[in-house]
């Protein structure tokens, strides 16, 4: 581990936590499907940041970079699928309100 690990971690750690908070807030409370998806993106970015920082701190930056790139690719795939779903929902209900997706219950 790098000698200034604790400081780096704390600094970036706060950043990560903030990012995650913003992401969760968006996912949980938005009434707009697109905003929800953006929130998902933000969440994933947060953890990517965490991985990079950790990788740097333990000296495995190459591994961390590989992981980050992989993550981004996966995330793209997921988001594409998610947007596809939202598009189909829009075809059905003509809106992108999250409350349209609350029909299955019980």
């Amino acid at each position: 581990m790098l000698p200034d690990a604790p400081e780096l971690l704390s600094l970036f750690g706060i950043g990560v936590v903030l990012t995650l908070l913003v992401g969760f807030y968006s996912v949980l409370t938005s009434q707009n499907l697109i905003r929800t998806l953006i929130g998902m993106e933000v969440l994933t970015k947060g953890v990517t940041l965490l991985i990079i920082v950790v990788g740097y701190v333990v000296g495995q930056i190459a591994l961390a970079q590989a992981l980050a790139i992989t993550l981004i690719i996966i995330e793209v795939a997921v988001i594409v699928v998610a947007v596809g779903i939202v598009l189909c929902v829009h075809k059905h209900t003509n809106s992108i309100d999250t409350r349209d997706l609350g029909n299955l219950k019980g």
């Binding site: 969760f24 996912v27 949980l28 409370t29 999250t98 609350g102 299955l104 219950k105 019980g106």
Partner: peptide
Amino acid sequence: VRLAHTGNYSLYIVWSL
């Protein structure tokens, strides 16, 4: 139990968290 499952995914996320 069934009533608790409102169909609102935000609730489920909250449960998970």
